[in-house]
Amino acid sequence: MSKPRLAIFDFACCEGCQLQIVNMEEQILDLLGVVTPVEWREAISDQSDEYDIALVEGSITRPEDEQRLKEIRKRAKVLVALGACATMGGVNKLKNNFEMDEVRRCVYGPAGAMPHLSTYSTKALHELVKVDFSVHGCPMSSEEFGYIVRCLASGTTPVTPTYPVCVECKLRENACRFEYNEVCLGVITRAGCGAPCPAGGSWCYGCRGPVDDPNVNAAKDIMARYGKTPEDLKSRMQLFNSVEAPTC
């Protein structure tokens, strides 16, 4: 069986997820044993229109980018969304809380009306094309990425956790962030990251998105026990989980 041809593309994002690929260091050479990279603008000079697996980082904010994404989808047998911008829009969706013309004026002033500065409300990839797999997180983790690519190359289906970050946080024996009088989204956020943020002295801000079937009652109990209300969650949830329509 010949190795699948792999291409990496990016749209509106910080390219931090591609950096996590670079951060695999010599393990990249192991991945090259199972896939053939044919396009990766950030790291190699080659370009190609023929590939089996497309890895796509970033969210979509312009018609021309939407068009390019759809062309990538047509060519690829498998399309993988890399990181929060691609899987759910990420912080870029904070923009959707405002009117687009107002946003352009806010950043660019009157010149914001110039046509090359146009923008529409931020969309995750799945809102425009079929996404076969998602590598969650902001940034995604190198380990999870390597695991998912190896699964795809060997024709198996990757499995991502369906329990919340709280589970992994407890396994690391971190003190609960609510004990510090902080609002932590670990109770409802999809695990798989290993809870690095609570371990690093912060709260979870939900960059992997909500777990499929959140235990809402347990989350309410915790909020009540520490004197917090769902309203306290709302502002923090907006960081990575803003929606399509304006919310403020």
């Binding site: 904010t61 923009k95 405002f98 107002e102 950043v107 502002s235 923090r236 403020c248």
Partner: peptide
Amino acid sequence: APRFFEAMLRGRSYQDVQT
């Protein structure tokens, strides 16, 4: 593609701005 960070920061708490 511009992402409009300066506009998106409006309304965020000082605790979340760095994030």
